[in-house]
Design a protein around this nucleic acid. Structure first.
Length: 495
DNA sequence: TCAACTATCACTTTTGAAAAGT
DNA sequence: AACTTTTCAAAAGTGATAGTTG
C-alpha cells in the first residue's frame, strides 16, 4: 500500500532514544520483535540446537514464534523468514562435541518463507503471537515445494524480516527491518548427532547401535541430548516419552528394540544425572571450553550483541563473543537494523540502539553486509581467528556464499528476501543496481518460499518479468504465491 | 570402514468434513 | 433452514531404527 514515500509520515514517531542510531534513523525503528518461548530456545541452544532436514521437508522444532509491537495498526506488513549461515564451515559431531569439518558447501538456493498471513495490517500482527510453524526445512536442492533449503551439518540461524508493504510487489520499495535471535541458531542435520547416548567417537548412529547391543554400558546421558528436549516438548513426539503410553511401540519388533526402549526409559529417568545444563554450550562445541572466561550466558544482560551468546560465536571469538542465550530467559527485544529499499548505498546496517542495549547487534547486520567495501565494519571481531574462510567474505551470517568464486562462495545471496532489484537492472525507471547486494548479476538471489495455500496475492502481483521468469525457468505458471514462491524472483535462477 | 543420508515404522497431534444438536 | 458443537477418520508430524550410499 505504501511506498517509501508513503512511509514518511510514519516516521514521525520518534524511536526510543536507545534506537536513535544512524544519522538518518528511520523512526520505524520503534518496531519491536520478541521471540516467544525464549526459555525453550535457550534450553535447546545450550545443548546445541539441531534441526532435522529431510527431503520432503521437516518442520522446525522449536518453531519460530514471535511477537511484534510498534507497527502502524492500519499499515500492511509482510513477514518473512530466511536462513542465513552462521559461518563458512561444515561441521561434524565428534566425541560429544561439534568440530569444524571443512569449508561450507556452496550454498543451496536461498529461499525466503513468507508468512501465510502476509500481507496483513499491523494491528493483526500485533494482536497475537506470530507463528512460523509451517516453515519447513529440506536438504533437497531441487525441492519444488518451496521449503527452505539447507545443507546438513551446517550452522544457520533464522532471520525475520518485516516489511511495510501492501503486497509483494511493493516490497521492493519498502523499508524492511530484520531481526535475529541468537538462541535460534541451529545445526541442520539429517539425523540427530548430539544424542549423548554413547561416547563412541564414530558418531551418533554408531553410538546408538552400540548402545543397543551393549545395553547398560552405553546408557549415559540422553537426558541432555537434543532428542530428549525434542521429545519432551514436541507434542508430535509424545509417543517417545517415557510415560507408559508407548508400551506398544516397537513391541513386536525384536529384543533389541525392547532393549533400546528400556534403555531410553532409563535414560530419560536419569535426566540431569550427568551433564549439567550449564555447560552445554561449552561442552558441545569444540573450542568453546578452551576459551575460559565467564560463562557466555552471563554476558547477555550486559548488552552485548545478540549472537555473541551463540556458543559458536563464542568459539570463534573468545574475547568479545562469549555469551549465551541464557539471559534469553526474558523475552528478548531485538531491535533491528533497517534497510531502506531500494538504494544501492542505503545499505547502512546500523544497529538501532544496539550500542546502548545490545539489542540488534550483529544479528541484524551480519546478513546485510554483503559488500564489505561499502559497509562499515560493524563487527571488527570478524573474521574470527580460526576462520579459514575467504578473508574478503562478508560477515559470517552472510557466510561463505557471499565470498565470490571460492568454493564457499555459494550461488546465493543472503542479503535478504527483498533483494529484488537485480531483476530490474537496466530497466528504465527502475534502479539498476542491487538494493543492497553487491553481488553481480551472475549471482543467484533468494527465492520466495511460502506456505501452502494462501491468501497471498497471486503471481500477478509480480512484475511481468517475475511471472515470466517463473514460466521461463520452470515451464508453467503458478496459481498462487505458494507455488510461485518456489521460484526465483529474479531474472536468473538461483541454481 | 565409516559418516551421512534415506525409507520406514509406530506413535502422536492436527485437520476438516460429516453428523448431531440447538 | 441456519448455525454451532461434536465426532471421527485421514493426514501430517515425530524420533527411532535399519538399510543404503559414496
Amino acid at each position: 500500500m505504501q511506498s517509501i514515500r508513503d512511509l514518511k509520515p510514519n516516521f514521525s514517531v520518534p524511536p526510543p532514544s536507545s534506537m536513535a542510531a544512524g544519522p538518518d534513523a528511520y523512526l520505524q525503528g520503534n518496531i519491536r520483535m520478541t521471540l516467544e518461548d525464549p526459555e525453550l530456545w535457550k534450553n535447546f541452544c545450550e545443548i546445541g540446537t539441531e534441526m532435522i532436514i529431510t527431503k520432503p521437508g521437516r518442520r522446525m522444532f522449536p518453531h519460530s514464534k514471535i511477537n511484534l509491537s510498534g507497527l502502524i495498526p492500519c499499515a500492511k506488513y509482510i513477514l518473512l523468514v530466511d536462513m542465513v549461515p552462521e559461518d563458512g564451515f561444515r561441521y561434524k559431531w565428534n566425541k560429544e562435541k561439534w568440530e569444524v569439518a571443512g569449508k561450507a558447501e556452496p550454498q543451496p538456493p536461498c529461499r525466503t518463507y513468507l508468512h501465510p498471513e502476509s500481507p496483513a495490517p499491523g494491528s493483526h500482527w500485533m494482536k497475537q503471537s506470530i507463528s512460523f510453524l509451517k516453515l519447513k526445512l529440506t536438504n533437497n536442492t531441487l525441492d519444488q515445494h518451496g521449503h527452505i533449503i539447507l545443507h546438513s551439518m551446517h550452522r544457520y540461524h533464522p532471520r525475520f524480516h518485516i516489511v511495510q508493504a501492501d503486497d509483494l510487489f511493493s516490497v521492493r520499495w519498502s523499508v524492511f527491518q530484520t531481526f535475529t535471535f541468537p538462541e535460534t541458531s541451529f545445526t541442520a542435520v539429517t539425523a540427530y548427532q548430539n544424542t549423548k547416548v554413547g561416547s563412541s567417537p564414530s558418531g551418533p548412529r554408531r553410538a546408538r547401535r552400540r548402545t543397543a547391543s551393549h545395553g547398560v554400558a552405553r546408557r549415559r546421558t540422553a537426558s541432555h541430548g537434543i532428542t530428549k528436549l525434542k521429545i519432551d516438548h514436541n507434542p508430535f513426539a509424545k509417543g517417545f516419552r517415557d510415560e507408559g503410553t508407548n508400551k506398544k511401540r516397537r513391541s513386536n519388533k525384536n529384543p533389541v528394540c525392547l532393549d533400546k526402549r528400556s534403555k531410553t526409559s532409563d535414560i530419560l529417568s536419569r535426566d540431569s544425572e550427568e551433564d549439567s545444563p550449564a555447560d552445554f554450550c561449552r561442552s558441545s562445541y569444540e573450542g568453546y571450553d578452551a576459551e575460559g572466561g565467564d560463562p557466555p550466558k552471563r554476558k547477555e544482560a550486559d548488552g552485548v550483541k545478540e549472537e555473541r551468546y551463540s556458543p559458536w560465536a563464542a568459539d570463534r571469538e573468545p574475547g568479545g563473543r562469549t555469551g549465551s542465550p541464557a539471559a534469553a530467559a526474558d523475552p528478548r527485544d531485538v531491535y533491528n537494523a533497517e534497510q531502506l529499499v531500494p538504494a544501492a548505498n542505503s545499505y547502512q546496517p546500523y544497529s538501532v540502539g544496539s550500542s546502548s542495549h545490545g539489542g540488534s547487534g550483529r544479528s541484524s547486520f551480519e546478513s546485510r553486509v554483503p559488500d564489505v567495501a561499502t559497509v562499515p565494519d560493524h563487527d571488527p571481531s570478524k573474521p574470527r581467528p580460526h576462520e579459514a574462510g575467504p578473508p574478503a567474505c562478508g560477515p559470517p551470517a552472510c557466510g561463505p556464499p557471499a565470498c565470490g568464486p571460492q568454493p564457499l562462495a555459494g550461488p546465493q545471496d543472503y542479503s535478504g528476501a527483498l533483494n529484488m532489484s537485480a531483476a530490474q537492472a537496466g530497466k528504465p525507471g527502475v534502479i539498476s543496481h542491487h538494493i543492497y547486494g553487491p553481488y553481480g548479476a551472475e549471482q543467484p538471489l533468494p527465492q520466495w518460499s511460502g506456505p501452502g495455500p494462501a491468501q497471498y496475492p497471486p503471481p500477478h502481483h509480480l512484475t511481468a518479468d517475475y511471472a515470466a521468469q517463473a514460466v521461463h525457468h520452470h515451464g508453467y505458471h503458478h496459481g498462487n504465491v505458494a507455488e510461485w514462491s518456489q521460484y526465483p524472483l529474479f531474472s536468473y535462477s538461483c541454481w
